[in-house]
Write a protein that binds this DNA or RNA. Structure first.
Length: 426
DNA sequence: TCTGGGGTCCTAGGACCC
DNA sequence: TCTGGGGTCCTAGGACCC
C-alpha cells in the first residue's frame, strides 16, 4: 500500500496556458486580488528570479523588460479545472483526497501487472490528455514521504515527473537532499530553529530524538517525524471534514473612509459568506466583522473586530446583515482610512440537525424559500442578478481584476472562440 | 499610487468550579 | 516559613498549509 501525491505544476499558470497556446514557453505570472502580489509563476518566470508573494510594483521593470505575461487570478476557471482533474484521478483509485486546489493524495497498489511507477506515469499522461495540466507525482509509504517524493519528481529531470520511493534504496538519499524547511509541516520559523540545532535536511530530522522533537515542535512535529520514518500518522481524508468557519475578506481596491462605504463592503462579504454557507448546507451561530487600516502605511494601524451571536443559528442573508450592521457601527472609528474588511461565520452546524424554531415557523419557511430562490436565480442568470438592498455593487472598495482572462469553462459569454477576434485583449 | 485570501491545529495562561 | 489539586472552558498567539 502506498500513497501518491498528484501535484499540478504551477497550477494557475498552467490553467491560463490551457486556453492560450501563445503562452507556452513564455514567462507567465498570476496575481493575487487587486493585482497585488505574485501568487503563481511559470518555470520561465521563476528563472527570471520572480519570487512568490512579491508585490508586483516592486518588479514592474523586470516584468516589462522580459515581456512577462501577467494575469489577475481567475478562481472560477481554476476551480473548474481542479474539479475535472480530481475526477480523472477517481479512475485510478477509490480512495482520493482532494487536498487543495492543485494537490490530491490517492492510495495506490502495485499489481502483478503494473508497478507503482508505471501507474504513476499512466495517471500523469491521462491528466495531461484530459485536462491539459502537467502534474508531478510522488509515491511513498506516508503522505509526508509522498510529498518529498513529489518535491524531487518536480525538480529532477531524471524522474520525468514521477518518483516512487516506496521501500526504495533511494529513499535515504532523497531525504538527505531535501532541505528541512521543505518537509511538509516544517515552515520557515521551525526551519530556522532546526538549522540552529544542526538539523538541516529531512534525513537529519528523521533521526532526531522523539523527546526533543516533542518539546520543540509539539505533537504535530512528532507526527511528521514518524511519517518520515515510514509510520503513517496522517490518514487519507476522503470525506472532507466539516468546516468550522467560513471567511470572506478582501483588501479594498482603494482606501475608504465613510461608514457608508464600509457598510456596502461588509454587506457584500456577508452575502458571499452566506452563499458559501448554504452551499455547504450549514448554519452559523456566530459572526465576526473586522475592519483594518493599511498596515503598510499607517504608523498606528487600527484593527477593529466585533463578534456577535446569531441566535438562533441561521443561514439567511438578511438576518446576518442586520447583526453585521450593528457590529460594524461598534468598531467604526471616523477619520481613519480603511484598507481591508471581512466577515467570519463560526459555530457552524449542519442545517438538518437544527431543531425547528419554537415559533415563527411560517416566517422561517418563507425565509428558506426566499434564500433558495435567490441562490437559484443567481446560479442561473449570473451572480448578483439579485442582491440585498444594503450592498451596492460598485464603489472604490471593489476588488480590482484588471487582467483577468475569460472564464472559459463557466461563463457562456466568455467561452473560447476559435478564429474570431477574442474579446479578451492584453 | 501599488503589499492576497482562507483555512487548521496546538499551547499557555487565566477564570472558574468543586 | 510552608497558601491544594484537578478538571474544564475560553482566548490569544503562534505555528503551519495551499
Amino acid at each position: 500500500m502506498s500513497i501518491a501525491l498528484v501535484d499540478a505544476n504551477n497550477f494557475y499558470c498552467s490553467c491560463e496556458r490551457v486556453f492560450a497556446a501563445r503562452l507556452h514557453g513564455r514567462p507567465v505570472v498570476v496575481l493575487s486580488n487587486n493585482d497585488g502580489c505574485i501568487i503563481a509563476r511559470s518555470e520561465e518566470a521563476k528563472a527570471l528570479g520572480l519570487k512568490m508573494g512579491t508585490p508586483i510594483f516592486q518588479v514592474r521593470e523586470l516584468i516589462e523588460r522580459n515581456r512577462v505575461e501577467v494575469f489577475s487570478s481567475n478562481y472560477e476557471l481554476y476551480g473548474d479545472i481542479s474539479a475535472r482533474l480530481h475526477e480523472v484521478l477517481h479512475d485510478f483509485s477509490p480512495e482520493v483526497e482532494h487536498y487543495s486546489i492543485d494537490e490530491s493524495f490517492l492510495r495506490l497498489d502495485a499489481s502483478r501487472r503494473q508497478t507503482l511507477d508505471s501507474i504513476g506515469r499512466e495517471i500523469r499522461n491521462r491528466v495531461r490528455k484530459l485536462t491539459g495540466i502537467p502534474v508531478s507525482i510522488g509515491i511513498a509509504e506516508t503522505k509526508t514521504l509522498a510529498k518529498i517524493a513529489g518535491y524531487h519528481a518536480k525538480r529532477s529531470k531524471k524522474t520525468r515527473g514521477v518518483l516512487d520511493l516506496t521501500g526504495s534504496p533511494h529513499q535515504e538519499r532523497a531525504l538527505g537532499l531535501t532541505p528541512v524547511e521543505e518537509v511538509w509541516g516544517i515552515g520557515s520559523r521551525y526551519g530556522e530553529m532546526l538549522r540552529g540545532s544542526g538539523i538541516e535536511t529531512a534525513l537529519d530530522l528523521r533521526e532526531a530524538a522523539d523527546d526533543w522533537v516533542r518539546q520543540h515542535l509539539t505533537v504535530v512535529g512528532l507526527r511528521t517525524v514518524h511519517e518520515l520514518r515510514g509510520v503513517p500518522c496522517l490518514s487519507l481524508e476522503i470525506v472532507p471534514a466539516t468546516r468550522k468557519t467560513v471567511t470572506v475578506s478582501r483588501s479594498f481596491g482603494a482606501e475608504v473612509e465613510t461608514l457608508c462605504d464600509l457598510r456596502a463592503a461588509i454587506a457584500f462579504y456577508v452575502s458571499r459568506a452566506a452563499e458559501k454557507l448554504r452551499r455547504h448546507k450549514l448554519a452559523a451561530g456566530m459572526i465576526t466583522i473586522f475592519i483594518e487600516t493599511n498596515r503598510f502605511k499607517d504608523d498606528r494601524p487600527y484593527v477593529g473586530s466585533a463578534t456577535l451571536q446569531l441566535a438562533p443559528l441561521t443561514d439567511a442573508t438578511p438576518e446576518m446583515l442586520a447583526v453585521a450592521a450593528c457590529g460594524l457601527e461598534s468598531i467604526f472609528r471616523p477619520g481613519r482610512r480603511y484598507k481591508k474588511a471581512g466577515v467570519t461565520l463560526g459555530e457552524l452546524a449542519p442545517i438538518e440537525t437544527l431543531t425547528r424554531r419554537l415559533w415563527g415557523d411560517d416566517e422561517n419557511e418563507r425565509m428558506k424559500i426566499l434564500m433558495q430562490t435567490v441562490d437559484c436565480l443567481n446560479a442561473k442568470f449570473g451572480r448578483d442578478v439579485l442582491r440585498w438592498g444594503m450592498f451596492v455593487n460598485q464603489g472604490t472598495w471593489r476588488t480590482r481584476f484588471g487582467k483577468r482572462s475569460p472564464r472559459y469553462t463557466t461563463k457562456w459569454m466568455e467561452i473560447l472562440q476559435i478564429g474570431s477576434n477574442s474579446r479578451f485583449k492584453k
